[in-house]
Design a protein around this nucleic acid. Structure first.
Lengths: 203, 203, 203, 203
DNA sequence: AATGAATGAGCCTTCATTCAT
DNA sequence: CATGAATGAAGGCTCATTCAT
C-alpha cells in the first residue's frame, strides 16, 4: 500500500476503511466490487488503487487494520479481567461491539475472514486473523478447567460456545447493520444458561 | 428444465447433479461458474444449458432435487423414531450423512441454500428449503420440553444446538470431501454431553 | 450434398426443402437456425447434416433448387407469351405465384438471395440467382422499346418497375404467408396504370 | 443510457454514433456485433456498455438520435418548400444526403429501422421512426392530387415512388459508403421522368 | 491528490456441427 | 436411415485495473 494514505484526514481514512470493510464483510472477497465501495464510501475508483494498488492489497490492509485495532482494544479490556470462562468471552465480544461503534462491520469482517475461501486471498485472510485468535486463546488459558462439571470437557465447551457465538453474531447482522444491544443481550442470556449447566455444583 | 435429463444413464445424471451441487455448495450461486462444473463433472458447457436452460434453472433443479431426496429419506428414517430430542437430531444428521454417500455435497448444499444471499436466486433457495425445515420441526415437535432442566429453555437449546450442528458440519467438509465418520462421531460426542447437562436429573 | 436425398419419399424431400426455404427466406442465411428448421420441418437435426454436410451446403442446395424449379416453370410459361413488357413481367410473377403453391416461400427465397449480404454465402447466393435473371432478361429482350413514350427510357422503366415489384412482393408476405391473390391483383393494378402512362399515345 | 456520453469530445461521440449506426444499418439489430463496432469505431468493448448499458440501449439511442437529427434538419429545409410532390420528396432525400455528410449511415439506418424485424427491438425501431414518417406525411399533405393525370391515383403514386426511392437508396450504398452525388442524380432523373408522365397535360 | 473514462480478460449463453446409438 | 446428446467457438456483458486529465 501507499503510506500516504495516513496523511489523509482521519475522517476520510475511516470512510474508506469502513466502506471497504462493509463490502468485504458482507460479500466476501470475490464478490466485493470496487463499484460498491465507490458508492458506499463516496470515494472515486482511482483512489482505491492509488493507495492500495489492487483489490488484494486493499483486502490485506483492511483485514490487517481490523484485526490490529481489535487486538489493541482487547489488550486494554482483557488485562483488567478475572478468569471466568464466560466473562472472558463476554468481554471479548463486548469489545467487538464497542469497536463496531467506530467500524460497524469490524466484527463481521473478522468472521468473514475466518469463512473466506477465495483461493487468491485465502492465505492473507487466514494469516491476518492469527494474532486475534492467539490473544483470545491466551486470555482463555487463564481459566481453570477444574471448575467444569465432569460431564463437560473443555474441548466440547470451546467448540459449542464458539459456534454459538458465531451464530449469534451473524444473527445480529440480519438487519444489515450490527445490532450491538441485541447481540450482547443474546450473549448474556446464553452465557447465563451455560454457566448454570456446565460448572460443577460446588462452585 | 428439459425432462429428457432423466433419460440419461443414472450414472451421468448423478455425475452432473454431483458436479453442480459441489460447485454451488462450495461457492454459492454467484461464484459458481459453469467452467468449474465442466471441470468437476467432465461434461461440456453446452450440455448444462441443453438440460437446464440457464444457471438459475440449474440451481433450481439441484436445490429442489437435493431437498426432495433428503426429505424422502427422512420420511423413512424418522418414522421409526422415538422422541428424544438428541436422538431425533442424530437420526436427521445420520440421514444426511447417508445421503452424502451418493451425493457428497448434499448436506453442504442444504446449508448453502440457507446461507444463500444472491438476489437473483434468493427466493428459489429459500422456498425450496422449506419442506425440509418443516419435516424437521414436525419431528422435533414430538419432544416434550418437560424433560429439560429448569435452567434450560427450549429456545436456547434449539439455538445453541442448531449453531453447533452447523459448525460441526462445516468442519466435516474441511478436507474437501464430507467426512461422514468424523461428523457422526463428533455429533454423538456433543449430543452425549448435552444429554447429561440439559435434562433434569430425575429423568 | 448427399445424392441419396433424392431417394427419400418426395413428400419428405419437399418437407425439408420447404422448411429450409422458409427459414432461410424469412431470416436470411446467418439468422436461419437449424433448430428452426427442425421445428418447421419436423425432421431431426442430424438429418440435415447427413444430407447437406453443413448450413452452407443446405443453403446452396435450396437456393439452387429454388431457382432451377422456377426457371423451369418460366420456360414453360414464357414460351407461350407475346411481347408486351408488362405482360411478360406479369407472367413471370404469375409463375412465381404458382410455384408458391408448392413451395410457398420460393418467391421470397429468390428475393432473399438478392438481398443476402452474409460474407460466407454471398457468392453462392449471387451466382445461383443468375440463371433466373438471365431468363427474365431474355424474355424482356423481346420487347421493343419503340413502344415507350419518348419521356420514358427503358433503363428508368426497368428500374422503377423492378423496385416496385420487389416492394409489392414483400408486402404480399406481410401476413407471414404469401398472399398470391393480393399480390397478383396489386401487380395487375400497378401494371394497368403503368401501361397507360409509359406507352406512347399512338399505340 | 449514461448522459455523460455527451461530455465526451464531439469527435468521439460521432465516432461511436457512426460506428454503431454503420453496423446496425448494415447488419440489422441481431447480427450487429459489439466486436464489429469495436473494430469500426476503434473504441473498446467495455465503453459501449459503460455508456449504453446493453445492445438494446445502444440501438435505442442510435435510432433515436438518427431520427431526431434528421427530423430537425427536415424542419429547416421543408419549411421553405413549395408544394410539388416530387420537389418535396427531393428536398427530403436531399436532406438525408446532407445528413449523410456527417452520419454516413443515417439514411440506411432509417431504412434499416423500417425493415427491422427482431422481436427484441421491434417496438423500439417502429416507435422511433414515427416522428419522421409524420413529418414526411405532413409535408406531402400540402400537395393537391388534382394535378395528377386521371390515369394515376395518389395511392399508386405513393407506392411506386416509395419503393423506387428505397431501391435507389440501397443502390447508393452498394459501394459500401453512401454515394450522395449518384443518389441525388438518380433521384432527379427518376423524378423528372415521373413529372412528365404522371401530371395531367394542362399543367 | 482525485476523478472517471477506457480497456480487456472472463463468465453466461447460443448455435452450428459431430457422433454414438 | 434417423435421432438428439454432446461439444466448443463466438457473442453479450461485468468488473478489476490503468491512465489521461
Amino acid at each position: 500500500m501507499n503510506d500516504k494514505f495516513f496523511d489523509l484526514k482521519k475522517e476520510k481514512q475511516d470512510k474508506m476503511i469502513n466502506g471497504a470493510m462493509q463490502v468485504f464483510a458482507l460479500k466476501g472477497y470475490k464478490l466485493a466490487s470496487t463499484d460498491d465501495m465507490v458508492k458506499v464510501a463516496g470515494v472515486s475508483k482511482g483512489l482505491w488503487f492509488h493507495y492500495f494498488v489492487n483489490k488484494a492489497g486493499l483486502y490485506t490492509f483492511v483485514s490487517d487494520y481490523c484485526v490490529k485495532y481489535l487486538t489493541m482494544e482487547l489488550s486494554v479490556n482483557l488485562s483488567l479481567n478475572g478468569a471466568d470462562y464466560f466473562d472472558i468471552l463476554y468481554t471479548i465480544e463486548e469489545t467487538k461491539a464497542s469497536v463496531a461503534k467506530i467500524y460497524p462491520y469490524a466484527p463481521m469482517m473478522i468472521q468473514s475472514m475466518e469463512d473466506e475461501n477465495d483461493e487468491e486471498i485465502l492465505e492473507v485472510a487466514k494469516s491476518r486473523i492469527e494474532p486475534y485468535t492467539e490473544k483470545v486463546n491466551e486470555a482463555l488459558a487463564e481459566f481453570s478447567n477444574e471448575r467444569l462439571s465432569k460431564n463437560v470437557t473443555r474441548e466440547m465447551l470451546d467448540m459449542t460456545v464458539g459456534y454459538t457465538i458465531k451464530g449469534l453474531r451473524q444473527k445480529a447482522y440480519e438487519s444489515g447493520e450490527f445490532d450491538s444491544e441485541k447481540y450482547l443481550s443474546d450473549l448474556r442470556e446464553y452465557f447465563d444458561m451455560m454457566k448454570k449447566i456446565v460448572y460443577s455444583k460446588g462452585v
